[in-house]
């Protein structure tokens, strides 16, 4: 039986950047009753998340992207090597945190990133129209993906 951790992250006061949080909150309700699935919302990924991730076999990240067309949904496997290793910034990438978990705790979680390309990053809580229209599809995609893990 897989144990799944869903991590939605971003800043909910910077419009589309907060879509990860919005998705996480919705998924918390969807999977509230389901054993073995935990959902967390975070403003940034930070190294101590590794300590939590080590207890799970599957990890799903939900993030806002700046690559591609606004509204685009993408699902990417996490590479075996950390793609971006922060040198100056105080935030880290999903690949970094997964690889960190593997190294630190000798576990091997499988991880995937769902991303939705944002458009507006000004101050505010409202998502841009494109992102807003796609959020339901993103959540549905994640729900299907997770249900697939349990079949």
């Amino acid at each position: 039986m897989p144990k799944t951790l869903i991590i939605g992250y971003g800043n909910s006061l910077r419009r589309d950047d907060g879509l990860g949080i919005a998705a996480a909150e919705r998924l918390m309700e969807i999977f509230a009753e389901q054993d073995g699935i935990e959902v967390v919302a975070a403003t940034q990924l930070t190294p101590e998340l590794a300590d939590k991730i080590k207890n799970f076999t599957e990890v799903v990240f939900i993030d806002c992207s700046v690559e591609g067309e606004p509204g685009e949904i993408a699902m990417n496997e996490i590479s075996a090597r950390p793609d971006i290793i922060p040198r100056l910034e105080h935030s880290i990438s999903p690949a970094y945190i997964i690889n960190l978990t593997k190294k630190l705790y000798n576990t091997n979680p499988h991880a995937i990133v769902f991303s939705l390309t944002g458009k507006e990053f000004g101050l505010g809580e409202s998502l841009s129209e494109k992102v807003s229209n796609q959020l339901g599809n993103l959540i549905e995609g994640i729900r299907k993906y997770i249900e697939g893990l349990y079949q």
């Binding site: 971006i84 040198r87 935030s91």
Partner: peptide, 13 residues
């Protein structure tokens, strides 16, 4: 580096 939007904050330096 005022990364209050992490999505943009992760851009390469």
């Amino acid at each position: 580096l005022s990364c209050s939007t992490h999505a943009v904050g992760q851009m390469a330096m």
